[in-house]
């Protein structure tokens, strides 16, 4: 049931999907949208028992009838073990492996933005210039190290890597020029 987040009063039916109206509880203006999922009752999967010879059994529940093979490891799975993800059927073990490795985008919970780190590292010497000696090589190293790692889910471009390493190269060139000038003097 949808509720007002201020007074926790249930939003009555005549206020749902009708635009802005006053909450009957606290009088604040609310806009509520409800969808059929609110009236849906979720039913769990009930795997069939293995009754006949010749039928394949589930790898994890040998007494249950297999309905689909795992799309990754090929093990037979019953309806209970079948996990559908992006149209593919996986077993719990493969899903867990992929989740732990952080390589199934659909279940990933967190990512590090290496490209932003690289760009920040390249720009940081603007504030504290002496650390350029450390940050410039580190920026170039990080660019090569993390180039192939997945970016943010909502980014496609790697321009931060390119901009960061470009700035770092310029900084290294500047350091070299200063060093050569000092050596010549």
């Amino acid at each position: 049931m949808l509720t007002c987040d201020n007074c926790n009063t249930a939003v009555p039916g005549y206020l749902v999907n009708t635009g802005e109206a006053r909450c009957p509880g606290c009088g604040d203006k609310i806009t509520a949208y409800a969808f059929p999922a609110i009236a849906r009752v979720e039913q769990g999967q009930h795997p069939e028992s293995l009754m006949e010879l010749g039928h394949a059994g589930c790898f994890y529940h040998p007494g249950k009838k297999a309905v689909v093979p795992c799309g990754s490891c090929g093990r037979f799975l019953c309806a209970l073990c079948d996990l559908e993800l992006d149209g593919k059927h996986l077993c719990p073990a493969c899903l867990e492996t992929g989740k732990d490795a952080g390589k199934i985008a659909s279940v990933e919970k967190e990512r590090v933005n290496h490209d932003s780190l690289v760009l920040s590292m390249a720009i940081l010497p603007v504030l504290i210039w002496p650390i350029v000696v450390i940050t410039a090589p580190l920026t170039i190293y990080s660019t090569f190290r993390h180039w192939k790692k997945p970016l943010s889910l909502t980014r496609k471009s790697r321009w931060r890597f390119i901009a960061g390493s470009g700035i770092a190269l310029l900084e290294l060139a500047g350091i070299a020029v200063i060093a050569i000038t000092l050596a010549a003097q």
Partner: peptide, 10 residues
């Protein structure tokens, strides 16, 4: 398919 609703309060 799982979203039941949105509530926005001024």
């Amino acid at each position: 398919r799982d979203i039941q609703g949105f509530v926005s309060r001024r």
